[in-house]
Amino acid sequence: MRVRYRAPTVEEADAMKSDTRPLSPHLQVYKLPIEGKLSILHRITGVGISIGMLLLTYWVGAAAYGPETYDAAMGFITSWFGYLLLLGFSVAFFFHTVSGIRHLVWDVGVGLTKEEARRSSYAVIAATAVLTVLAWIIGLA
């Protein structure tokens, strides 16, 4: 059975008008769910990884140019700003990877209910944190 939309009458429209009702969608009324936030973050981290690959290319290129260039690159990478970039790159990498695996699971039709999607969202955040910390512990050891 197909339901058709019926426009409200003038009287119904006047009754629906209210000075206290916000315009929809309104930022104070609508809250983006965690699944939507992580979807946006998945796209942002994809771009961040692409930009972060420039740092990796710089490092490999510096190694190819000789010891002086490599030492200069390592001086930058091991500075506080370089470590900050590497931390951001590793968080983006692990988040994008784990979130991508979640999307692959969704592609086979598993975990599509609202509750399962919410739980998997928090699992993605937790896995990203654990993998990032483990990688830094192993990398700095």
Score class of each variant (00 low, 15 high):
17 K>M: 10
113 T>R: 04
111 G>C: 01
128 T>Q: 02
14 D>I: 08
96 H>P: 03
95 F>D: 10
47 V>D: 03
78 T>K: 11
111 G>R: 00
130 V>I: 15
119 R>N: 09
121 S>A: 13
126 A>I: 11
10 V>C: 04
21 R>D: 08
138 I>M: 07
87 L>F: 13
47 V>L: 13
39 S>G: 14
52 G>R: 01
71 D>M: 05
104 L>V: 08
91 V>T: 08
76 F>K: 06
83 Y>Q: 15
141 A>Q: 12
55 L>R: 08
139 G>F: 08
134 L>D: 00
67 P>S: 11
21 R>K: 12
73 A>K: 11
70 Y>W: 10
28 Q>G: 15
94 F>N: 11
106 W>K: 14
40 I>Q: 11
20 T>K: 12
105 V>D: 01
80 W>G: 04
16 M>H: 13
64 A>K: 12
6 R>D: 07
114 K>Y: 10
5 Y>S: 12
102 R>P: 02
129 A>H: 00
10 V>G: 00
1 M>W: 09
71 D>P: 02
49 I>T: 04
125 I>N: 05
109 G>N: 01
58 Y>L: 14
93 F>I: 09
43 R>C: 00
120 S>G: 06
28 Q>L: 15
60 V>T: 07
115 E>W: 07
4 R>C: 04
136 W>P: 06
55 L>M: 15
80 W>C: 02
119 R>T: 01
29 V>R: 08
118 R>D: 14
115 E>D: 15
21 R>G: 00
45 T>H: 06
18 S>H: 09
58 Y>F: 12
125 I>G: 06
75 G>Y: 04
61 G>E: 05
41 L>S: 10
62 A>L: 07
81 F>P: 02
35 E>L: 08
137 I>T: 13
9 T>F: 03
32 L>G: 03
94 F>T: 14
15 A>M: 02
97 T>K: 02
104 L>W: 08
15 A>V: 00
19 D>Y: 12
24 S>Q: 02
80 W>L: 09
117 A>W: 01
137 I>A: 13
51 I>E: 06
65 Y>I: 06
133 V>W: 06
74 M>E: 06
71 D>L: 04
78 T>P: 02
94 F>A: 10
56 L>V: 15
63 A>I: 01
136 W>N: 10
93 F>D: 01
138 I>N: 02
116 E>S: 04
59 W>K: 03
32 L>T: 15
113 T>S: 15
68 E>T: 13
76 F>G: 03
86 L>R: 07
96 H>M: 00
46 G>M: 06
45 T>F: 02
91 V>P: 03
25 P>H: 09
119 R>P: 06
23 L>K: 11
95 F>W: 11
90 S>I: 14
27 L>R: 13
111 G>H: 01
117 A>N: 10
102 R>L: 00
10 V>P: 00
25 P>S: 10
13 A>T: 05
53 M>T: 04
89 F>R: 10
27 L>C: 07
94 F>S: 09
16 M>P: 02
62 A>P: 08
78 T>L: 10
